[in-house]
Design a binder for these strands. Structure first.
Lengths: 116, 116
DNA sequence: CCCCTGCGTAAGCAACTGCTTACATAGTGC
DNA sequence: GCACTATGTAAGCAGTTGCTTACGCAGGGG
């Protein structure tokens, strides 16, 4: 991905990494500091910090100073665009296939299914 | 992304590109050949072929031989995992703010096993 | 048979990712 | 002020992406 300028691309790109999704799932339990967040992962803190940068850039989380620590919290509406795109297209694809099924049913009623 | 072995990562990665999403949206109108698919894009046909490879690897499309041409068609269930993940987490994130009040109330009352 | 079309694939290249280790910066407490 | 903690940032490296051009292979038609 040559630097995604498109918000939707940034969101999907942020989600296309198991570590980043795991971070989001941990954050679903409540805000955490970067250190708490990084602890269970096998990678270094700077690596997590960079992942958080990607997630923040995608609008999926927010980082706010809290004294010496930095609290990371989910931004639920950050997922709205992604859900809208996926839901819309999945529904469209499926309805198309429903129509296709009907068309095929019509065709098979007219044609005979005598293939091998 | 160091070669995503995780299906969900492959799906999100495939969606994290405007060209690939545009291909999917074109395919929503019905199956097309690779040449038809590549025509409206500014990139070369091999580039589209590679994008199709990514989409196929993610399980989002299917390519089938049809004589001299290759028909590309959507695989609607390919989007199921992505929609499930996004919908589940978006709902969880949002309901979290609602449940937070109840959880706090429960805690202050003491743990009450009043769930079904 | 030969040639043309449609498409995938290999090679090569610039750009990006993701990780690491250093270092810089901000806040806390003595 | 000084040290310590928590975190972001820079530099460097291996691996991947995405594009290109060139080529290979299958199918259709003379």
């Amino acid at each position: 991905m040559p630097i995604a300028t498109d918000p939707l691309s940034r969101i999907f790109f942020a989600l296309a990494d198991p570590t980043r999704r795991a971070v989001l799932e941990r954050l679903a339990g409540g805000p955490q500091t970067v250190g708490e967040l990084a602890a269970p992962f096998a990678v270094s803190r700077p690596a997590i910090s960079q992942h958080l940068g990607v997630l923040e850039d995608a609008g999926l989380i927010e980082r706010t100073r809290q004294g010496q620590w930095r609290s990371c919290a989910l931004r639920p509406e950050g997922l709205d665009d992604a859900e809208a795109w996926v839901a819309e297209h999945r529904a469209a694809w499926q309805s198309r296939f429903d129509r296709l099924d009907e068309a095929l049913a019509d065709l098979t009623r007219g044609h005979d299914a005598s293939e091998a």
